[in-house]
Design a protein around this nucleic acid. Sequence first.
DNA 1: CACGAATCTGCAATCGATTGCTACACGAAG
DNA 2: CTTCGTGTAGCAATCGATTGCAGATTCGTG
Lengths: 344, 344
Amino acid sequence: MSEATLKDVARVAGVHVGTASRALDPERSHLVNEVTRKRVQAASESLGYKVNVMARGLRKGSSGLIGMVVADVGNPFLSPLLRGIEQELGPRGFMTVVAETHEKSESLQQICEQLLARRVDAIVIAAAHLGDEPFIRSLEALVPVVLAVRQVGGTGHHTVTHDDVLGARLATAHLVDLGHDTLAQLHGPADVSSFVDRAAGFRQVVSERGCRDVSLTEVAAKPTVAEGKRLTGLLLGRAAIRPTAIFAHNDLMAVGAVEALTEAGLSCPEDVSVIGYNDSPMTAHLEPALSTVRLPSHALGRQAAARVLAQLGGQEPASTLQLQPDLVLRSSTAGRRGVLSTTA
Amino acid sequence: MSEATLKDVARVAGVHVGTASRALDPERSHLVNEVTRKRVQAASESLGYKVNVMARGLRKGSSGLIGMVVADVGNPFLSPLLRGIEQELGPRGFMTVVAETHEKSESLQQICEQLLARRVDAIVIAAAHLGDEPFIRSLEALVPVVLAVRQVGGTGHHTVTHDDVLGARLATAHLVDLGHDTLAQLHGPADVSSFVDRAAGFRQVVSERGCRDVSLTEVAAKPTVAEGKRLTGLLLGRAAIRPTAIFAHNDLMAVGAVEALTEAGLSCPEDVSVIGYNDSPMTAHLEPALSTVRLPSHALGRQAAARVLAQLGGQEPASTLQLQPDLVLRSSTAGRRGVLSTTA
DNA sequence: CACGAATCTGCAATCGATTGCTACACGAAG
DNA sequence: CTTCGTGTAGCAATCGATTGCAGATTCGTG
């Protein structure tokens, strides 16, 4: 049950532990005679020796661990993101520890404490809230930090996000192009940059194209199906003019919207078009199949990892990279009822 | 950028480093005078001291890390499982490192190597294939291992799984109760215990209740929508008798089945009932809403963690725990067409 | 033959925290 | 006044690997 140590290897090979260390390190094995190197290697293999990463880390002052902070691992766009990070970092000897905040700022701080105690070499935060800026600034004094997916404002942060303004613009422009001129958005929690940006993109296009924005002022407490349904219910129940197209800040809320429409006796896309965001796994198989915005999450993961490596390598200047999403058109969006005949 | 060490704390507090160590450890702080303890504590806080977990781990011979091996973090039932594990282990000072195998046995072995190099205190494997038994046996000689979700056969393994035989029995019995007597299953990859067990449960009920099993002999290469659709296509295209109900080994394949039916001009549940497995997130919102089997994954995570702790505590005898799934009935399953009128 | 260079290898300090043992001071008891 | 106990705190070894430095050996060359 006890592992072999370098001392054991050295003893079996009949050399000093320092020599064994050098023999086993590709970077330094040229300092060791070919013959002894082979002998050490053989001893190492026969004993099943595996370097003790803790001991090495202690000496070298780096743990080979990267902390990854997410809100909720169940979020479908996180798996390509994590995969992207692993893909870049894994081959370089790093491993990733993932921790969840469940969207709570206190737990973000607690988690970072723990990660610091483990002397992680860097922290990737994909769960930042807008209000976390001061904390993150202080964290950056202690460890390299990369903000992924969500920004926090302020300057000097290394950030890699999706371009959510663009994504929202794409989605909204698509609706306008279909002939809709009375639109509403289902707004996700306002303390997350992604939703704030999507809201901004929506408003830009609505105003540029001279459409009517009949959105609620109320914002979803959580970006869930239930909230999407509730808000859409509110939207439909109001005395004001109804939208003929809805831009939901994520797919879950879009699903909720479709359900609310159905319950109100309206159908999608005939009466109201709905577009979501994220291109979640099952969306293509819904009825109607959901039009949505696809995010390059895998690329985002790789870029985030690249930023980590860059910071570890030398003093990289902070910068913000935005990856471009694109539209996935399916059947939940269609021309406005009557538009065709009107035009004809 | 450099962290304070215990030596710094000791210097500021004007005590020896050993004393500082004791003062900061609740277990041993009674060995230190109340006054000096306070002084050390104050120094620690003023310096923002955080224990170096690597150094402690090296000395104490334990890393406080638990390795978690999964096939694919995108699998929706993993998030409650991971949460369950964190919930038990987090408060006890452990952190979890998650690694993905992508269903490849070589990478299972590579990952375990890396985890061993990090001296993880235990490994939880949720990605085992049936053929991995010998490897896992050898691994158990080096580190406490808990098998979660999937078994590997053989004896002496600490295992916590869903009772997939029962789950399949429940699903199949439900179909038979609805009046179906010609059934087929869509079989997931045969090197995974979960699917083997589901197949067995299905066959048991089919035979007990005197039904006809018209399943394909072919098994899905992967448990995906595409494979579910392809296999269902095959099933419908055969000269043999068509099933009136299909048990898919997971929800994705069930979705594929529904699509294949639709394309063949059949409808679900009117012509053919379909039931899935896992109760994946969107299944309630599909058309038709999918009947399925719900797994207590969160509880499974907690149990797996409990097993880890038990093994870490003392020599617990190996055992297998099976958690009971239950049925979620929605609208993709219905009485056999014509059954009602026949009975009438 | 000798001397400097080149090539290996050993030595020992080091990373930061833990912990068994020792040492000191003080007070009480004999 | 000595002895023993108790409460504190210091000392130093230890975990396992890395690495700058120095010693040793061999080789080439003047």
